[in-house]
């Protein structure tokens, strides 16, 4: 089974985010980038599929700071081939990024002929689109999102995918291949890979470079960010300070007052 995984880097929200001076975007100077979490799950699901029924896992990523580490780590985990789209405009919106992915896939026959495209169902910066639905429309393939399990059918021509609904209810779907799946979570948590294996991957593998499509996405429907702000954190909560013992006593007092103890 030939599997293509699309990965994007997003700001690490564990770090403090700063707004750019124009007030319309993030200040990228000190931004730490990490891989979109559900893209990491998409990779894991791809590796699980390969382990079960054989095949090849190709990872395609947009260039961004630290993306090389993510790609070498993908190799160390078991990906066969890693590619990076270079030379494009950084700071693409999700819709533009999805367009770049679609054009690159469309222009390379070995990418276009894969059995399934897996990518994260959503990212924290998906303000103007989700990647998987855009891609499915551009490539003319069916789309299923919020997927948490993928199994290749006996025939090899379809997968059975489990997707989440709400209240813990899930649905089992038959998806004919080729298809685009938006992965919410892999069947198992993304595997850990030791640094030594990543270093070995850096020596044994090369990241293939793909040029970003030059033709701008003319007529891309646009949105305009008028302003960005950080929500007033703790304007709502009453903050309790002190040593753990002191705070515990305060909390116990609140719980008692409310008849909870």
């Amino acid at each position: 089974m030939n599997i293509l995984v699309l990965m994007r880097m997003v700001p690490d929200v564990v770090e403090e985010l700063e707004i750019a001076p124009d007030g319309k975007g993030l200040d990228t100077e000190y931004l730490r980038m990490i891989v979109n979490e559900s893209d990491d799950h998409a990779l894991e699901q791809a590796l699980i599929l390969k382990e079960r029924r054989g095949g090849k896992v190709t990872v395609l990523a947009l260039d961004a700071p630290d993306v090389d580490d993510v790609l070498f780590s993908a190799v160390a985990k078991g990906a066969d081939r890693v590619l990076k789209i270079e030379g494009g405009d950084g700071g693409l919106t999700t819709r533009a990024a999805a367009g770049v992915f679609a054009k690159v896939i469309d222009s390379q026959s070995d990418l276009k002929s894969v059995d399934v495209v897996l990518t994260g169902v959503q990212a924290i910066d998906d303000l103007d689109a989700l990647v998987a639905p855009i891609l499915s429309r551009r490539l003319g393939l069916p789309y299923l999102g919020i997927v948490t399990k993928v199994t290749l059918d006996e025939s090899g021509k379809a997968v059975t995918a489990v997707r989440e609904f709400s209240a813990g209810v899930r649905g089992e779907f038959e998806v004919p291949l080729p298809a685009v799946l938006g992965i919410q979570a892999a069947e198992k948590p993304p595997r850990y890979v030791p640094v030594a294996k990543v270093r070995a991957a850096m020596k044994s593998h090369k990241i293939e470079s793909v040029g970003a499509p030059t033709t701008a996405d003319a007529g891309l429907p646009l949105i305009e960010v008028m302003r960005m702000r950080k929500p007033e954190v703790s304007s709502h909560a009453q903050m309790l300070d002190g040593a753990p013992e002191e705070i515990s006593k305060k909390l116990a007092g609140i719980f008692t007052e409310r008849g909870l103890l």
């Binding site: 985010l17 303000l127 949105i223 305009e224 960010v225 008028m226 302003r227």
Partner: peptide, 9 residues
């Protein structure tokens, strides 16, 4: 962590 005011064109 961030709120944005956005308008569609």
């Amino acid at each position: 962590k961030i709120e944005a005011t956005v308008t569609a064109k």
